[in-house]
Nucleic acid binder design. Sequence first.
DNA 1: GGGGTGTTACTCGGATAGACGATGTCCGAGTTACGTGGG
DNA 2: CCCACGTAACTCGGACATCGTCTATCCGAGTAACACCCC
Lengths: 162, 162
Amino acid sequence: MREGVEWAVHCCIDLSWVSPDRPVPAARLAAFHDLPTAYLNKQLNALGRAGIVSSRSGPRGGFRLGRKPQEISLMDVVTAIDGAAQGFRCTGIRLDGPAGAVAGRAGRRTGCAVERSFREAELDWRRRLAARSVADLAEAVRRADPAAPGRVRRWFDQHGPA
Amino acid sequence: MREGVEWAVHCCIDLSWVSPDRPVPAARLAAFHDLPTAYLNKQLNALGRAGIVSSRSGPRGGFRLGRKPQEISLMDVVTAIDGAAQGFRCTGIRLDGPAGAVAGRAGRRTGCAVERSFREAELDWRRRLAARSVADLAEAVRRADPAAPGRVRRWFDQHGPA
DNA sequence: GGGGTGTTACTCGGATAGACGATGTCCGAGTTACGTGGG
DNA sequence: CCCACGTAACTCGGACATCGTCTATCCGAGTAACACCCC
């Protein structure tokens, strides 16, 4: 799992708290979390390609959420950053070498049992991530500290472009 | 997910079908699946450290299962090969830079909501893998092709050490 | 005063280096079986 | 014939290169706002 996923999720939560008619530049988000600006920009790019955020160039430009926070799942973010590839890659060694010859015709026809089990597990993981939205996480943070959203929003307003 | 996991699981299934009083050298297992011998040996080493297989040096040496197939879960194998580290690493950016100052004392005390969600998802994944044993997979293969176990066993008997 | 235009500063976006971990390979330590010699 | 010993081959186990991917950085294309000038 790439580290950028954590960054992206936190940025989405932040963006859900600032006024939507005020795009936030990558540099501001990076400064807020003390991250390398250019690299965070790259991650936000990926979010943009997935439609999770929308970007705008030039002065007064930056990023804002591309759709409502409750419509952005953690799975969406992971897919945008890490790609859609599965964690478990079946390279088919089951049928390589003599093993292929030893496996019967019936065995060759059916899928790989190992791959199936790992797919199931990964599906569980995906389902759970798909069930959690950015809005859910933002709500959890707000519950722990009701004033947090306001403070975050104020920080971005004060430290925005001059 | 490292590729060696796939190799390790298939080797465990193979080993569950050969006679336990006949250790199988890494070279034989590698030849069966057309894999690089030395590298597979490395993976089997890791399985050995985890107690999943037991190894023996010298002539007539090799690997055999360290315990019954129904007592080896896929999670055990993954942990042995990939390590116990989590896929999602929380680096704590939530509290780095100005974000730490903006977060209230209450926010600092509670754990990271993002990390919690990813942990939950990963726990689902782990649970599913822990519920599948090598015996389950071997049984699935046998059901698709009842003669497969016998053929595999015969191959290793015939192509064993002279 | 209003409108058009050139300039300027700002931001994203993708192309370009560097670092870390996984992949793949090699050789030495240890162990077992076998052959040999002696009792 | 039985036993002890030396020898030799075989296998694991960990140390050593190589490769790919993630991490990090930089610079150019595009854009919107601003200032200025002309009407």
